[in-house]
Amino acid sequence: MDFSQNYFEIFQLSVSFDLDTEDLSKRYRSLQSRLHPDKFVDATDHEKRLSLQWATRVNAAYQIISSDLSRAIYLLELKGVLIQENPKLPKNFLIEQIERREELDKILEDGCSMELLAAFKGEIDKCTADYLAEFSEIYLTNLRDAEIVVYKLQFFNKLSLQVNKIEDKILGY
């Protein structure tokens, strides 16, 4: 097993942000249907261990590159850019984030209608899509700006997770 392969190489894909997810999931399933421990019930202990390691690595790789944000972060990592915990972001972006949070708080205070929440989520999804498009366009030529876009995407991802949490509460979890 070649641990020096990156997550794209595991699927015999070229390193790129733009990815045919349908094709990726075909490759993923094809690999797992040959490497998964269930295919090695009769095998030697050594093969069982190899199978577990492979299946684990294929799952980890798939998890990272199948999702847009984690794929973006991984691409930066491959280029030697490590994501910071507390990045410096443009002031107007931060203000915009605060406003969105206030908007969400208001939806909560006003009795938390599912419709308003859905509209808010739609807005987040749209911004996310825009930033993803921007990342795809610039990450090969402008690493510095691409990194900033990833931080912005992380903010939107957090918001989206928060909306999910609120939904969970409404659904009684």
Partner: peptide
């Protein structure tokens, strides 16, 4: 065992 694994990976993509 290692050869079998590699072969399994190759066949995953040839399939």
């Amino acid at each position: 065992a290692a050869l079998r694994m590699d072969s399994a990976v190759r066949s995953a993509f040839s399939g």
